[in-house]
Amino acid sequence: MKFFHAISRFSVAVGSLSGLATGIMMVVILVDVIGRAFFAAPLPLATEISVMLLIVKVFLGMAGAQATDSNFQVTVLTDQLSTRLRHFQRLLTLLIALLGISLITWFAAKYAISSTQKGEMSFGVHPWPIWPERIILAAGLVLLVVQLAVDLIGTMIWGEAKMKAGLPDHSGAI
């Protein structure tokens, strides 16, 4: 079980980069707006940097959100289920999510490899490499797949409550 908790803690730690990316994105946009408004000099590459930070924010935060059960959930119907059916529903949804996200991850990883081999760049005033963004996206999805697998296996063996013990509770259930 310690191994499973270590993976979940790692997911949460990587997810913290998501918050850091948000802060940096705010600073980049603020500097760009001030430069445009007061000095008629926008920050070069502000849009490209913001897009990369947005990818970091979204894709590196997904596994941490899964680990802490922070994803938004509407539990009106599932709350009406018996404990046994709720457990089965949890396992089924984790399995479906694992299969679907694994497929998306496979294609994202192939695309990241292809993009990296080609040295894919954006077109604009300042060329900007896109391949690192593809790698970040694929890495975030890989972390999510690992976290979903940990949640599925752990829930099968120990149940949901024991799997989430010791992790921050940010449940978005209503």
Rank of each mutant, 00 (worst) to 15 (best):
A65F: 08
H170V: 05
L141F: 01
S18L: 02
A37H: 08
G35D: 08
A41C: 02
S122E: 05
I55T: 05
F107K: 05
S16K: 09
A173S: 13
V146I: 15
T68N: 14
S102C: 03
A161N: 13
G35E: 07
G159P: 08
I24Y: 04
V27I: 15
F107R: 04
A109T: 15
W128L: 07
F88W: 12
W128Q: 01
Q80H: 10
F107H: 11
D169E: 13
Q80P: 05
M26T: 13
I101A: 00
L92Q: 07
F10H: 06
G100E: 04
S18M: 06
M25V: 07
L141Y: 00
I174K: 08
I101S: 01
V146L: 09
G172Q: 08
F59I: 00
S70E: 05
L95G: 06
T68F: 08
A109I: 12
G166M: 10
T93P: 14
H126M: 09
A112D: 01
L152V: 08
S122V: 10
L99Y: 02
A165Y: 12
A13E: 07
V51R: 09
R9C: 11
V150F: 08
T83H: 11
M156W: 13
I174G: 09
A173N: 11
A139E: 02
G124P: 08
F38D: 03
L60R: 00
M52W: 03
F88V: 14
I135Q: 04
A108I: 02
I55D: 03
T78P: 00
G124C: 05
V142S: 01
P132A: 04
W131K: 00
T47C: 02
P129Q: 08
G19Y: 05
Q147K: 06
P42S: 07
Q89F: 15
V27F: 09
G61F: 02
Q89E: 12
T68C: 15
S171G: 14
K110Q: 13
I34E: 07
M26C: 14
A173G: 12
T93S: 14
Q80V: 09
